[in-house]
Amino acid sequence: MTATKSRTMPLDSCEEIVHLRQTTRSWMAEQRFTLVEQTKMMTATSELARNAVVYGGGGSAKLELLEGSGRMGIRVVVEDQGPGIADIGQAMTDHFTSGQGMGLGLGGAKRLVDDFEIRSEPGKGTVVSITKWK
């Protein structure tokens, strides 16, 4: 699996959340993902980006177009150096919220994509990677 295109974007403000999700959408439109796939990935990206900005104190996102073994995909990796998540299992459950959201962020994002990976360490930050395959 190789990345044929890659771009790193800052995530420090709510305008940058919009910029990231719009960029994700336009990359997917170029690759002719269906409208539903675009909408799901863009929504999942927005959830993760907001987590990074609001709870992680900001961070960055890496967008990658992937190609290999006859398929292609798009991956978004969102990273922050915030407080981290002590109990990932609990954070993934619906309606668990530490703040103002609906508590659908992580669990909801996972349902919208094909691959979902999360790594977090209290005091060090969180990295979440989501991928949608075509």
Partner: peptide
């Protein structure tokens, strides 16, 4: 939009 309706239901909202 229909794609938005599909997505929000799957999101859990």
């Amino acid at each position: 939009q229909p794609a938005v309706a599909i997505t929000i239901v799957e999101l859990g909202m």
